[in-house]
Design a protein around this nucleic acid. Sequence first.
DNA 1: GCTTAATGTTGTCGCTGTCAATATATATTG
DNA 2: CAATATATATTGACAGCGACAACATTAAGC
Lengths: 209, 209
Amino acid sequence: MPKPDPDAPRYHHGDLKSALLQAAETILKRDGVEGLTLRAAAREAGVSHAAPKNHFDDIRGLLSELAAVGYARFRTALIAEAEAQIGSFEPIDALGIGYVKFARDNPELFTLMFRSGRLDFERPALRDANRAAFAVLASGTANGQTMPASPTATQRLSVGQSASIAAKWSLVHGFACLMLDRRLQPLLQRTQGAGDELDLLETILRRER
Amino acid sequence: MPKPDPDAPRYHHGDLKSALLQAAETILKRDGVEGLTLRAAAREAGVSHAAPKNHFDDIRGLLSELAAVGYARFRTALIAEAEAQIGSFEPIDALGIGYVKFARDNPELFTLMFRSGRLDFERPALRDANRAAFAVLASGTANGQTMPASPTATQRLSVGQSASIAAKWSLVHGFACLMLDRRLQPLLQRTQGAGDELDLLETILRRER
DNA sequence: GCTTAATGTTGTCGCTGTCAATATATATTG
DNA sequence: CAATATATATTGACAGCGACAACATTAAGC
């Protein structure tokens, strides 16, 4: 009788959705967002070019689901950094450092998540992952408040609170974007005794209080 | 004898490069960066699909030259805002307001210039326009210094000066990016008596001194 | 005026996303 | 268990894209 050979080519993959997401991430790291196509992911996973349609509808679906994975990792990275920096930085600043570190360590994924313009945030997986990540950010942004995030984040804010949150968020987000585009490099190069970008960020955060 | 009819179809356009750039901007505003293709620009300008190659080499060339036009406008917008805000904001903050206003008023162009990842900054036109624009920014960023920019921007900076510049630049750049992605909207909506994004930015800038 | 270079057109190639039609495996139900 | 329905994967096709080569037309230089 024919044994179930795991190496035998099977018509049905079994867990193609995960395999495609993994293939997509491989391509993302190797070729960047530009090189990440539906057909390339199918090739990488060893299936036909139209197979991804069953799991992701279209290219925006694939990119959005991969971005959702990214937001989940982003969230855990933020939490980890906040815990690691206890005693060194305020929670809000620790989260900012985690934000920029994530961008530095996952440049292509960060670009996909924050700068691609090809995502569908209505897609439930992405919508939820995005919200969960920003709930962590918001939790450390309210004055003096610490982890974990308040799950019901519908409370009203004062203008001052909003300004404080937007300022910090804009700062680290802009820093991350400029860093990934190597736009801070000229600045660092003409700075006496400058370190790398992360040193610069920590200097900024320490000076602001 | 045949008069030179300006409406007659001529084999040579005369000024196709400008016409293509104008067509490209029309498409950019109408369809976004995604819809801006070499062939679409050629169609919009009424020439054959391969005509742009003579003037822009490839798609990156066209996008880069259009971005160069954008940086030139960006520069004049910054200067105009700095002059308009004399007495209301410090030069550095006035430039920041100009930065965000430009993004608000030219979202697609800003996206092309700062977030597309499809530009070639080695291309002389873009390289020069980019430098000229950031010379204006740098001129208002040195402590208390005012317009116009010092053309020779090769002087060394202290870590504190770099931190100050990077902080302000990151803040307005991040704010602009988050604004264009409508990521500040949820924040504004749960803020008591909140205005629009620009009000929020001005609040931030006033609070930081 | 002749030659040369610049500019524009046509045709082609491989790639992409998307769709329709079809094949195969799994799930469900009688 | 068998028949059917559903989910999953393949094949083939189409138009749009960037890029290239071959060619046509015009302008520029000598």
